[in-house]
Design a binder for these strands. Structure first.
Length: 573
RNA sequence: CGGGGUGUGGCGCAGUUUGGUAGCGCACCUGCUUUGGGAGCAGGGGGUCGGAGGUUCAAAUCCUCUCACCCCGACCA
């Protein structure tokens, strides 16, 4: 492709609203433009990147035996009502009405639709296993779209759905997808880590996420890795063994109310009473689907909202109760809530709290706390569960190795759905005994538009993008420093024709721009290889070959250009 | 949803406090010169200042309403 014949609107100045480097570079290098909050247009360069990555995904999915289909973006609300997710998916689901006032939804994911497709037609175990996938636009009305393609409201996703007759077969299908995912990201030049994750709105029995590890703010997911074994989990999911458990008294002491004037925060209370925050238990009031609940965790811990949501079984993520509610439910201002004497509020108690004796809690009275509180004797838990977010330094639940925290960008996920959808939507087949059974399902996503941005976040410098070769819009960019000069133009045109003839994706900057403009733009858009054609080296019959990721320039004989390019590309990631 | 902020040519911004009829840089067009890391000079085109209403002789500027976009928060007892 010639630069003047395509559309690459590069910007010298970055638009003001881009926060991430990768977002800014996508805008500046002319890959995307914003239409509305969280909605982007893909320009020719981005379209090529999307095509290349999609093709890798397609090849690996096909190789794993999955079949490509296309499902509709628009779906009648009924299918979602049938699975129960019309109510449970929440405000992220885009809903619209058609001219007949029929309720429709824009697909955020397609479990319901694919189940509806298969149901009634796939009736025999002989037709299993089956894996259907599509690469298609998705809509999620994010609370707060940001970071460009990283958290958009409209985006492209590869979503696959497996149907199996039993658990063993399903596990094999799941593993096949995991293997395919590692191959996909590897081909795209990305190192990924697989971590355990919460199943979230998807439901089901287990889930994993594929993460690109980054150091920047782009890493929205907080991950915990074991230094010793292969345990890795999202912090929504991660469990741990305490590295430094507090000392526990042998005997239960009598409950005692003490004055704690003005001591409402953990710091104030621990200081005032001179106790370790590990021996203080905070009582956090939340509203779960408009009903008050209380969560009890140790003073030094952070409550994990996902774990709380799972424990209380609410539809929406619980929200912190406001001061007014706290006053009404506990009879005390914020800072003095406690489990003793709370009426009609279920207490979800973290497992660490159960191991404590004689701890401090709020007294549900202004400026007062109880000391020597004990669970069982002084109050009863509705449920004892893990409610705490794991942190670096605690021990691995598998092997007791040290846990380390990292940040990551989620580029893929896999869900073991079990029979959640096949049961709620009554999708069944007949087994060899003629018995009707529900499909065991799995679903598998890859962010087609997000992954390239993750790659940019991972691979860039202060001048621009540095693409891995397999998802670069063009593998090579030819920069004749002066295209008006006949010999430079002739050499550039010749190399352009030769490389194209050799099946290499090549961009020729045929603009009549100054050298500096073209070189800067080349660095900005980030093709892995650059061929620079200047008067000095051309006089010797040479061109300059430079990898974007390196500062080294190789002088190559004009006639050897194609083989030199092929050899260098071979070496690159 | 709560708080804060911003809307002025394609992009980045000034002008708003103190009303007087719109400006700068980049980009774009023409010409000449220039040509290995975002050139110089000269000339030129493009904006009913987010929208609606109001105050006024006069509104980008003041008032009211509205829309859009951005940031922060919504893990604290």
């Amino acid at each position: 492709m010639k630069w003047t014949e395509t559309y690459i609107p590069t910007l010298r100045e970055a638009p003001a609203d881009a926060e991430l480097i990768s977002h800014s570079l996508l805008l500046r290098a002319g890959y995307i433009r914003k239409l509305a909050a969280g909605i982007y247009l893909y320009l020719p360069l981005m379209q090529r990147v999307i095509s290349k990555f999609s093709q890798i995904v397609r090849e690996e999915m096909n190789a794993a035996g999955a079949l490509e289909i296309t499902m509709s973006v628009l779906a009648p609300a009924e299918v979602w009502q049938e699975s129960g997710r019309y109510d449970s998916y929440g405000k992220e689901q885009m809903r619209i009405k058609d001219r007949h006032q029929r309720e429709m939804v824009l697909g955020a994911t397609h479990e319901e639709v694919v189940t509806q497709l298969v149901r009634g037609e796939l009736k025999s175990y002989k037709q299993l296993p089956l894996n259907l996938y599509q690469i298609q636009v998705k809509f999620r009305d994010e609370i707060r779209p940001r970071f460009g393609l990283m958290r958009g409201r409209e985006f492209i996703m590869k979503d696959a759905y497996s149907f199996d007759r039993d658990i063993e077969s399903h596990k094999a299908a799941y593993q096949k997808m995991i293997d395919a995912y590692f191959r996909i990201f590897d081909r795209a030049g990305l190192d990924t880590r697989k971590v355990e994750s919460d199943t979230g709105a998807m439901g089901g029995e287990g889930a994993h996420e594929f993460m690109v590890i980054v150091e920047t703010t782009a890493g929205e997911a907080h991950l915990l890795f074991c230094e010793a074994c292969d345990y890795a989990a999202n912090d929504e999911k991660a469990t741990y063994i305490e590295a430094d458990p507090p000392q526990v008294d042998a005997e239960e002491k009598p409950l005692e109310k003490v004055d704690t004037p003005g001591a409402a925060t953990i710091e104030e209370v621990t200081e005032f009473l001179n106790v370790d925050s590990k021996r203080l238990v905070k009582t956090l009031l939340y509203m779960a689907d408009d009903k008050p609940i209380a969560a009890l965790v140790r003073g030094d811990r952070d409550l994990n909202l996902v774990k709380l949501k799972n424990a209380c079984g609410s539809v929406e993520q619980p929200e912190m109760a406001d001061a007014e509610t706290v006053q009404k439910e506990t009879g005390a201002p914020v800072g003095f809530a406690g489990p003793i004497g709370l009426k009609n509020i279920p207490l979800y108690v973290d497992q660490e709290v159960v191991r404590l004796k004689n701890f401090v809690v709020g007294a549900n009275q202004k400026d007062a706390h109880y000391i020597n509180a004990n669970i069982g004797r002084d109050f009863k838990a509705a449920e004892v569960v893990d409610l705490v977010t794991a942190v670096e330094g605690e021990l691995c639940p598998k092997c007791k190795g040290k846990l380390k925290a990292r940040k990551g960008i989620e580029v893929g996920n896999t869900f073991m759905l079990g029979t959640k959808y096949s049961e709620s939507m009554n999708a069944t087949f007949l087994d060899e005994n003629g018995r009707e059974r529900n499909f065991i399902m799995g679903s598998y996503g890859i962010g087609i538009t997000r992954t390239p941005q993750a790659a940019i976040e991972r691979y860039h410098d202060d001048k621009g993008i540095i693409w891995p070769k397999n998802i670069a819009p063009y593998q090579v960019e030819i920069v004749p420093l002066n295209y008006k000069q006949d010999d430079l133009k002739a050499a550039a045109d010749q190399i352009y024709a030769d490389l194209r003839g050799a099946g290499i994706d090549v961009l020729l900057d045929d603009r009549l721009e100054r050298a500096g403009v073209k070189l800067n733009d080349a660095d900005l858009i980030g093709c892995p290889l650059r061929i620079t054609i200047g008067a000095k080296s051309l006089k010797e019959g040479k061109i300059e070959l430079k990898a974007r990721c390196s500062d080294e320039v190789e002088l190559v004989d004009l006639t050897q250009t194609v083989s030199a390019v092929q050899a260098t590309l071979e070496r690159l990631k």
